[in-house]
Nucleic acid binder design. Sequence first.
DNA 1: GTCAAGCATCAGCTCAGCTTACGTATTCTG
DNA 2: CAGAATACGTAAGCTGAGCTGATGCTTGAC
Lengths: 315, 315
Amino acid sequence: MLDVRRLRLLRDLSHLGTIAAVAEAHTYTPSAVSQQLAALQREAGVALLERAGRRVTLTPTGEALVRHAEVVLAALEAADATLAAARGGLSGTVRIGAYPSAVRTLLLPALVALGRDHPALDLMVTELDPVAVPDALRDRRLDVALVHDYDIVPVEPDPALDSVPLLDETVFLAVGADRHPTDDPMRSVRDADWIVGSPGTLCHAVTLHAGELAGFRPTVRHHADDFAAVLALVAAGQGVGLVPQLAVDRPPSGVVLIPLTIRRRTRIAYRQGAGGHPAVAASIVALRAAASDLPGAELAGSCRPASSAAGQRGR
Amino acid sequence: MLDVRRLRLLRDLSHLGTIAAVAEAHTYTPSAVSQQLAALQREAGVALLERAGRRVTLTPTGEALVRHAEVVLAALEAADATLAAARGGLSGTVRIGAYPSAVRTLLLPALVALGRDHPALDLMVTELDPVAVPDALRDRRLDVALVHDYDIVPVEPDPALDSVPLLDETVFLAVGADRHPTDDPMRSVRDADWIVGSPGTLCHAVTLHAGELAGFRPTVRHHADDFAAVLALVAAGQGVGLVPQLAVDRPPSGVVLIPLTIRRRTRIAYRQGAGGHPAVAASIVALRAAASDLPGAELAGSCRPASSAAGQRGR
DNA sequence: GTCAAGCATCAGCTCAGCTTACGTATTCTG
DNA sequence: CAGAATACGTAAGCTGAGCTGATGCTTGAC
């Protein structure tokens, strides 16, 4: 019978790419991980890893084993959830992660409601970029997280994670008041300077892709991840940028917001199997309530969506 | 994250009933099992066990946890199976269990075919009563087993096991040549002496139940588990008995076999998740081939039945 | 060429988890 | 209704799985 701890290391290796990263995630030394994976391979009787330059990659068999590992870990997570439910009374720590603009608008009211309804619950919030969320959930640094993607830049689901839809927002093109929007707003700003997110973020990718769809390559002038900063730069005449609805509750003067067809979709993600955990379930309820109280943006998905929804995979 | 070894002990406890039995099944001392279960309970944070007299029983939470454990163990078994497939070339040991009459008729030809087609496979056969099969499969003393039940005495499926149908046989009422069968053969022997299996076996239960259905309580005279012995006793005028088709290839003279509507159903059982194991799959193919070569009895189920079929639970 | 990143191996130590020994509660039996 | 047998739990002690830390090799970047 295979050792689940070792399977977990293999699973994490397939996501993190290097033994050193797996070691760090588990607060082990790389040596320990290397030894454990070697032992797993020995008892498997098949090659699971192979050196690829100075790193290791999984063989097809290794990848197949990872898929089984995901099932095992999800089942263990579900077992944990039933135990938490049996312990009764919502208690313990819930670590919630969210991207910056969601913290202010969505998370804060949800947090207040959760703290009021379940005083025994210890709530911890972490602000982080959506691309870092899957790893953080897998490594158990987070229990629940808000993630998003754009319809024109969808992210593939992560087998280790489950999620439910939360919000579906309009994305706006923010331009200076001197510009005159036309029927095709994106084309009208093809020669403008652009304010985009840092490379590697979704906000960066979506701007480039939106330009591509409109037939041009945006000229990147400024990098800003905070949408308030983006709007301020636009107001100062420094260029144009894309901002989602959540971020534009009070746009500065001198900025014109033109709705595009692009949608940003926010989801609540958690570890596969943890959906039955009472604290996770309560968090989902509170977040959905907070989202429905939000002006403007419409609630996404059905009221209680099925579990087969998708998580998101980093990188 | 819960420890799978401990979950396995809990699962086995729910089937075996005592810590001592679990210990024996794992070749541990009862003390070790007790300590591990105590640790499991401690990290679960809920009562999983409670003393009931001098034994322990599972709390409802404990039972719920066992159900999760079954899922985890099945997934690990499936992982094992893919590794075995990846190792390629059928090799290793397959331990097959069967009830006595199946060994001669079904298992022998299947064994010959398996040994011929896959010489690297080490085959071990164990003859045992069907009621002992579930425990043996769970405890990994067997990998594949033939089990049966009767349509009038169905056995509930075991969540730890999976199975596929193999045979569907007629059950005969064996009487001495002096008796004259009527339209309702069971009623015509209501006052006869009966030859039944040992108490606790299915053969025992089915005879009593068949009598009950016909409106009488069979007078038990002899106990015999070997159907050849049953037929010999019938031929000697010692009474009547029920025998399945597999056991009556060459009935002794002086015995009249009257077909009843009762059916005996034989299935191939294996651990949940092990159906993908190449050795198990090969065994199933060979057994089905042997069954289809059998004169008389018709092959049960579809050619390649779905995996949702039932195992059997002892006692 | 030089340096850092990354993995594997070896030696050594620590603690999880086993056995053994014993105590206690319960059930069975004559 | 003793007395034996069964079953579980706890305490003490020992062993090996698995960790750290040191070292060496290979690869890729500059």
